[in-house]
């Protein structure tokens, strides 16, 4: 749910990066964080285990000002991908304004993609969020690896809503910005509606 303050002329929106374990959700927002101008970003918070697996969530606030209108602050969150953190994932979806589903393109991770998508749909249902009405972008990550599934297969199995989708190599920043721009565009469009 966006929060609009007419006194400070600020709009706050929450964007969640969802996907199976090790699909590159943290890599996505870390790349964004590393490449954004210092004046446009707050502090990045990572709640991770010693082996850098996300334990609860990562958080990056990003501010965009425009001259005439409002300052928009996007709160980017990632969920923990591992199956056992189902409860934490649900908590992070609370009040979500847009979702980026980061899929792992590798063939052996496809079942994990599908399980995580089911898990996301169930969590959204529990919050009474209609996925048809939620800004949603898919990202097929790790396209540089040898054992990847064709995009058509990923699209057919995961992107059942014909949402915008992008191929990515998040470690190199390929596709990261495109994905981010598309989800922010959709979220802002929904506010205007």
């Amino acid at each position: 749910m966006p929060f609009i303050n007419f006194a400070t002329r600020e709009i706050n929106c929450k964007i969640v990066y969802y996907g199976p374990g090790l699909s590159g959700k943290t890599t996505n927002i870390k790349w964004i964080y590393d490449h954004i101008k210092p004046e446009n970003k707050g502090e990045m918070i990572t709640l991770a285990t010693e082996t850098e697996r996300t334990l609860f969530f990562d958080f990056v606030p990003i501010e965009v000002s425009n001259v005439k209108g409002f300052k928009v602050r996007f709160h980017l969150y990632t969920t923990p991908g591992q199956i056992i953190y189902q409860a934490s994932r649900k908590l992070i979806l609370k009040g979500v304004d847009g979702v980026v589903f980061v899929a792992d393109s590798q063939e052996e991770r496809h079942d994990a993609n599908l399980d995580t998508l089911d898990d996301m749909l169930e969590n959204l249902r529990e919050y009474d969020i209609d996925i048809e009405d939620l800004p949603l972008v898919f990202q097929y990550n790790k396209r540089d690896l040898p054992n990847v599934l064709p995009v058509e297969v990923l699209r057919r199995d995961l992107n059942r809503w014909n949402s915008p989708d992008f191929e990515a190599v998040a470690t190199k920043g390929i596709g990261v910005l495109e994905t981010f721009k598309e989800i922010t565009r959709q979220v802002l469009k929904k506010i205007k509606r």
Binding site: I4, F6, I11, H35, I36, K37, N40, I62, V64, N66, V67, K68, G69, F70, V72, L177, F180, K181, T184, L188, I191, K192, R193
Partner: peptide, 18 residues
């Protein structure tokens, strides 16, 4: 609706990045 009063059309995300 509150959103008519909001002008977010001209937000340029490219200016965010270095």
């Amino acid at each position: 609706s509150v959103t008519e009063q909001i002008d977010v059309e001209d937000i340029d995300l490219d200016t965010l990045f270095e």
